[in-house]
Amino acid sequence: MPNRIKSSPSKEDIQASFPELQKLFIPAPTSRNQEDPVKAADEITEYKMSSKPCGLCVIINNVNFDPPLKDRYGAHSDEESLKMVFQWLGFSLRVHKNQTAEQMKDLLKTYSQQQHDGDCFVCCIMSHGSSDGVHGTNGTIVSRDDIFGPFSGKSCPSLINKPKVFFIQACRGKEYHLSVEVQPDSYEEEEVEADAEMEDEASFETDAVEMSTLPADADFLVARSTVKGYVSFRETISGSWFIQSLCKQLKKYCPKGEDVQTILLCVNKEVSEKAARLRITGIAKQMPVHKVTLRKKLVFRVPNPQ
């Protein structure tokens, strides 16, 4: 007689025969709406950015310093790039050059006490820095609290619920990021070092700032040229890696409606792929970083895109 293959009992048969086992079976997860699942990004709204002008952009660019600090050659290129981009984005501009520490503190306090009718406040600070903060031209430190504190909700009520954005080009220490070898998991060769700008050590400098935390307040975005403990590179003619990449990525992606945090990821990628050849330490790298207490997407809308 041919062998008969008995089929195994189904889960439903077992549950019917042994009701007490039903609680051991975990039902398959189901979505409330399989055809139109809700994504987290769909539930995040955008900050209002429709005022004209849409906000104020303050640029503080320290170029000439008292000895022993060196002048920051190439910083003029960063200033011009920032002015062009934020004017294009519909911001009012205020540019201040060569500010001592006390002048920087007074400026920031003055701007925080103004009535901000626009939708956003942007502050770009370019200077030398150290583990304690940003240097004024006289070498004195401007601390994290000096920079961010005046714009907290308690100190600056006209910016409550509005994004406060800080772009800071300055070193945060004296260490150099050394390169590491990578092997791509793809069939396409990725020449990270070959695409990087290899500059002679004499053609770029560092801006050797440490700002370890954000203020305990909402709606801040702080983007820094490098992570804690490390230097930032600035080419003596074309400007700093961070600011030049920031301006390039803003020009590329703002017309496409990308949010600023996504654009900063593009900045991180581009800057991290650059390399500087140093005589003592060899190949050195740079890794920008940003921290946020934003509660919505921040999108810089181009008023009249071409």
Results as ranks from 00 to 15, higher is better:
220 F>N: 00
223 A>Y: 00
242 F>P: 06
285 K>G: 01
254 C>H: 01
230 Y>K: 03
177 H>N: 10
238 S>N: 08
273 E>W: 05
199 E>G: 14
273 E>Y: 07
225 S>M: 03
181 E>N: 09
204 F>N: 10
221 L>H: 00
180 V>K: 12
192 V>I: 15
188 E>N: 14
175 E>A: 04
189 E>A: 08
179 S>W: 04
238 S>K: 08
202 A>L: 14
243 I>A: 07
186 S>D: 13
184 P>M: 02
275 A>N: 08
193 E>I: 15
236 T>R: 12
188 E>S: 13
205 E>T: 11
177 H>G: 09
286 Q>Y: 06
286 Q>I: 05
181 E>K: 09
241 W>T: 01
263 I>G: 02
182 V>P: 05
195 D>Y: 14
188 E>I: 08
229 G>H: 02
272 S>Y: 06
229 G>A: 02
268 N>M: 11
177 H>I: 02
176 Y>S: 04
244 Q>F: 10
197 E>Q: 12
190 E>L: 15
203 S>Q: 15
196 A>M: 13
276 A>D: 06
195 D>N: 15
282 G>Y: 05
285 K>L: 02
217 D>N: 05
271 V>P: 05
262 T>A: 09
217 D>M: 02
214 L>Y: 06
253 Y>M: 06
263 I>M: 05
274 K>W: 09
267 V>K: 05
239 G>L: 00
241 W>H: 00
225 S>L: 04
233 F>W: 05
263 I>P: 00
203 S>N: 14
286 Q>S: 09
176 Y>Q: 02
269 K>N: 14
